[in-house]
């Protein structure tokens, strides 16, 4: 019990620190005092509340969404190297978003929700296609089949994105920037756009925390333990694609968060999803807030895409995990 308390306290302290650093550090240094006393420096308060805070909150939400989705997918797939992208959900979300930008689609009554909804629609359609195809290949939907199908779809969808980019003129830069992932200059509307979906998606996953624990022992074992595997698997996949879709819509494709955060959390505090999901959520937020901070300060005033930073940290960690797993298995 005490171990879990420590985990939550440490995670929240990290998050608090990350937020504090995120809103105060930058080209203009802002005193933390402005947070609770806006009157002390109105320009600084303006920057803090209208530019930095929404950026930090958005980074936090995206990081949290990707991390919890990653944790759930890894548990479901029983594959430590799986992340939201292996299933093709992320590519599907990207296609949805790129298409929205490319064709300038705007669904009237959705308004600003057009982009995330299209993105999630892309994610869900891809998801269903992946599942449908996997089912055709193997009726029992073995996880290996699902992953392989996801990879096939990812490659296919990636080529569609490349084609659309090749056909774009001046939009090109914007889309490439978006593909690399960024949370800059988004503001509060983007937070509002993503927040409801991220809360719903996370809640769906959290409802399946015990089922995920059982599924770590394999789907057959989970069924023996009384888990309605087919239904639960579907809910987890939908929850994960809602999260991925929402994250991709507001920030583009930011890799490795969904892989690295659950892994480190698992290494430190164990694989019990009753805590792993929540802890990944909190720590995913902290990690992406810090990464965003680094991306905008490291070669200031030029800003790096956040995806560059996460890949820079994530890829070596990925390699390390891969090495350890291989060594462990062999």
């Amino acid at each position: 019990m005490s171990k879990n308390w420590v985990a939550y306290i440490v995670s929240f302290l990290l998050l608090g620190t990350a937020i504090m650093l995120g809103v105060t550090v930058g080209t203009v240094s802002i005193s933390p005092e402005v947070l609770w006393n806006p009157a002390s420096d109105e320009t600084a308060a303006n920057i803090l509340w209208n530019i930095r805070m929404p950026r930090v909150v958005l980074a936090g939400l995206v990081g949290a969404a990707l991390a919890i989705a990653g944790a759930a997918f890894q548990g479901l797939l029983r594959n430590p190297l799986a992340d939201p992208y292996t299933l093709g959900v992320s590519s599907g979300a990207s296609v949805g978003a790129v298409m929205t930008l490319f064709f300038g689609i705007s669904v009237p009554f959705l308004g600003s929700f057009t982009l995330p909804v299209m993105s999630m629609a892309g994610a869900l359609v891809t998801m269903l296609a992946v599942i449908g195809f996997a089912k055709l290949v193997d009726r029992s939907m073995k996880m290996e089949t699902v992953i392989l199908t996801g990879i096939i779809f990812s490659s296919f969808l990636g080529s569609i994105i490349s084609l659309m980019i090749a056909l774009t003129g001046e939009e090109l830069r914007q889309i490439i920037g978006w593909l690399l992932g960024s949370v800059s200059m988004r503001g509060w509307p983007y937070v509002q756009m993503a927040l409801p979906f991220i809360l719903i998606g996370s809640f769906l996953l959290w409802l399946n925390r015990r089922e995920l624990n059982a599924m770590l022992f394999g789907e057959d074992r989970a069924r023996h333990l009384g888990v309605d595997v087919r239904k639960r698997k579907m809910v987890i996949l939908i929850g994960g694609s809602v999260l991925t879709g929402a994250a991709v819509a507001v920030s583009g494709t930011i890799g490795f968060v969904g892989l690295v955060v659950p892994h480190i959390t698992r290494m430190l505090w164990g694989a019990d999803h009753r805590h792993l999901l929540s802890l990944s959520f909190i720590n995913g937020a902290s990690l992406l807030i810090i990464c965003d901070l680094v991306s905008r300060t490291i070669i200031s005033p030029t800003e790096l895409p956040i995806g560059v930073i996460t890949a820079f940290i994530g890829a070596p960690v990925f390699a390390f995990i891969f090495f350890r797993q291989r060594k462990g298995v062999a």
Binding site: Q74, G75, R78, N79, P80, R210, N213, A214, L216, F217, G218, D220, R221, H224, L225, G226, V227, R266, G270, A271, D272, Q325, V329
Partner: peptide
């Protein structure tokens, strides 16, 4: 069932507790 390798590891207590899932 027959024993299989696992990618992730629960503690002994967590594993036995899963028997109470139903």
């Amino acid at each position: 069932p027959q024993l299989h390798a696992h990618a992730f590891s629960h503690s002994v207590r967590e594993t036995v507790s899963l028997g109470r899932y139903p």
